[in-house]
Every structure is written in C-alpha cells, then in structure tokens.
C-alpha cells in the first residue's frame, strides 16, 4: 500500500515540517490501513441473553456461594479464623456468613485441638447441622493431634476419628489466606455434587441396647460450688461495694500522701 502524497498546502511551512503529513493525511492513512470498526453495540442476540444451565448447576452455584460456617473454635486456630471475619481478610465476599447456631450452618471449620471431653459436644453439633453439611479440619491438631499426638492422654488424634472430614487444611495454625484456599477448594467440591446422590447422606443407625451392671455415680462437676456458703459470702462481699468505691479509696489514699505502691494496690 502506497501512502498518499501530502497535499501541497502543507508544504508551505518551515523546511523542517516539509515531510510532515497533515492531520487529515494521517487520518486518511489510518482509515486506509486499519480497517476501522463502528462503535460497539449491546448485543440483542437470543443466544447471548439466555443462560442455559442445569438445575443441578444452579442449585450448586447457589449453595457454594452461601456456605455458612458455624462459629466453632477451641484453640489458637480460631484466632486465625477470627482474623478472617474482620475487614482485612473479609470472608463475607465469599458468601460466608458466620452462624452461631448449628441449625443454620452448613460448614463447620474445626479450629483447634479436640479432646475426648469435647468429642460428644462436637459430634452433637455436627449432627444438629442440616444436610448437606461439610467439615474442614483446620490445623495440625485436628488433622493428626499435632503436637499433642506424642503423649497426650486426651487429645483426639485427628477429627476424622469423630466426624467425616471433607477437607484437610494443614498448618499450625494456617494463615487466613490458607483458609480461603480451603474454602475455594470446598466450593469446587460443592459444585461437583448432584442432587441425585443426596440419598447417600442419610445416616444408618444400627442400635443395640444392653442392660449393664455399672454403678451409677454422681457426677464430679455439678455446679454446686456456686451455691457453697464460702462462694456466696465472697459474692456478697463484692456486691456490697458501691460502684466507684475502689477509685474513691485510691483517690483518698493519694490525697493523704501515702506511698504510690499502696495507692496502686486497689486498682
């Protein structure tokens, strides 16, 4: 393609601009070489405006976009999980809304060491969650027992000994970004599920009841200490003090010029 020769009128200027093409000429060059397109329009084609999907996919999409985790934490892993709740990591953008009731949650992130004493409570919480439900085992303690696996008499060696675990999230404790990674992987898992397989989730109970000869005993912890006379006396003594009495006492001590160490005692 030969560039068009500049018009004669533009060559009348200074000698330095003799070879400079005019604006109009540049536009002509572009128009001749670029193949210009019109301004884009919003498509009105039917194929671009109708989304075809399956019921499974749209149902899964709705579920994976609103995974509601149960606020459950027993140890330092929950500190990282709590960081996730805040504005810096902001896990609401994944549709995760923390729930305080297992009845409204469909994800439990088991954060922290689980002991045999905690085990019935954890299993109960898991059973109270509605199906379909998911479990993320967060941190070394919930996966293997972690640093307690060597010699602890009470720590559960892996929470998969108690409840089915969908996802293992290693770390001690894992960073909030790692929890995001786990949640994204869980979303992929949720996206692959099918309504037709829902029947597999029903529990099967195989009950067997036997009488026993064990001796019933009173539980050691029964809350009775709260009603003990010594406890009542201690609470009554504190309740008798008016509000601000301690501060007034300290101010009085300062004004009378006693030593600072004594003055600091009531605080």
């Amino acid at each position: 393609m030969t560039p068009p020769t500049p018009p004669a009128s533009t060559t009348a200027g200074s000698p330095g601009l003799a070879e400079m093409p005019s604006i109009q000429a540049l536009k002509d060059v572009r128009a001749a070489s670029c193949g210009p397109v019109g301004s884009p329009t919003v498509t009105s084609d039917l194929s671009e405006n109708v989304i075809l999907t399956t019921l499974d996919d749209i149902h899964n999409w709705a579920r994976l976009s609103s995974l509601w985790p149960l606020l459950y934490g027993t140890a330092c892993c929950f500190i990282e999980f709590a960081a996730l709740l805040g504005s810096r990591f902001d896990f609401d953008r994944f549709g995760l809304v923390p729930r305080s009731s297992p009845r409204q949650a469909d994800l439990i992130i088991v954060a922290g060491t689980v002991t045999m004493k905690m085990a019935p409570a954890l299993v109960r919480l898991y059973e109270q969650m509605p199906e379909p439900k998911y479990v993320i085992a967060m941190g070394a303690c919930t996966i293997t027992g972690g640093m307690f696996s060597a010699d602890s008499t009470t720590a559960v060696r892996g929470v998969d000994k108690l409840i089915p675990v969908d996802l293992y999230l290693p770390g001690c404790p894992p960073r909030p970004e790692a929890i995001f990674d786990a949640v994204i992987k869980l979303r992929k898992k949720v996206g692959n599920e099918s309504l037709a397989e829902r029947g597999n989730l029903l529990p099967t109970h195989r009950y067997c009841t036997v009488p026993h000869q064990l001796v019933p005993t009173e539980p050691i912890v029964n809350g009775r200490y709260l009603r003990a006379e010594t406890q009542q006396a201690a609470l009554a003594a504190a309740a008798g003090l008016p509000l601000g009495a301690l501060e007034a006492e300290r101010d009085a001590a300062l004004n009378t010029g006693s030593s600072p160490a004594d003055a600091n005692l009531p605080s």
Binding site: I163, P164, P203, T204, H205, R206, Y207, C208, T209, V210, P211, H212, P216
Partner: peptide, 12 residues
Amino acid sequence: PSQLTLDVDPDN
C-alpha cells in the same frame, strides 16, 4: 441410666 445403647458407624 440402667441401659446402654450402642450405635455402630451411623455415617457408613
């Protein structure tokens, strides 16, 4: 309190 019930592997 006089009986013990065992449930085996409810989640199969």
